[in-house]
Amino acid sequence: MLARLAANRLLEIRQLFRQPLSSRSFSTALNYHLDSPDNNPDLQWEFSDVNKEKAKEILSHYPSNYKQSAVIPLLDLAQQQHGGWLPVSAMNAVAKVIEVAPIRVYEVATFYSMFNRSKVGKYHLLVCGTTPCMIRGSREIEDALLKHLGVKRNEVTKDGLFSVGEMECMGCCVNAPMITVADYSNGSEGYTYNYYEDVTPKRVVEIVETLRRGEKLPPGTQNPQRIRCGPEGGNTTLLSEPKPPPCRDLDAC
């Protein structure tokens, strides 16, 4: 008995140590910057002429003494322009536009997981990993994608076309599991961010291949039996006109 107890305890302790570090998922890559040839503060980076106009438009939404409020839309714009990720020089450029110290921009860019600070593919595939999607099989979806593309998470395929990341709930759990495709293949003008819902391991591979061929495919549910987020095979309840609320007669007042 004693021996078993001790053995159990030992097992627990061993398990503790065996736990791989990666079991605690951190949002994205490192929280500090390492200089590399394609990402260092000495590289020139500027908004393109079209995007300069857009940046101006974005800034006009905020009072002139609160320019820093524009940090998120501007970072997003910069990310679209730069093929889906933010080099440190792009963040510096944003800091200059909104007239704050660069560190204030770095803080924001590291906080939000949708700002990528390392290279992503032209099509950045984000698999939702939150509970509803996970229960409906998001792990298999991710595995299928990674296996098909032959990459690890947050790694870019050799041709630079695809990368796979994980995302938290994107609000369409009703069509779980789902993936998002951030399409940076056409710069910030043709940028799309589409949800593909009700996917299966087979279907995601098809989606990838369609994208590879450069074709567009309609976003939304991939289950032909469903219309948007309605139930499979059409509604079974709530078929009549909704009744007015019982508590209050709107016409009377």
Binding site: F26, N31, Y32, H33, P41, E107
Partner: peptide, 16 residues
């Protein structure tokens, strides 16, 4: 600055 979030949060200068 304060970089990252959640348990990954850390104090730093981001660039060296």
């Amino acid at each position: 600055g304060m970089l990252g979030r959640g348990s990954g949060e850390e104090i730093g200068t981001y660039v060296e």
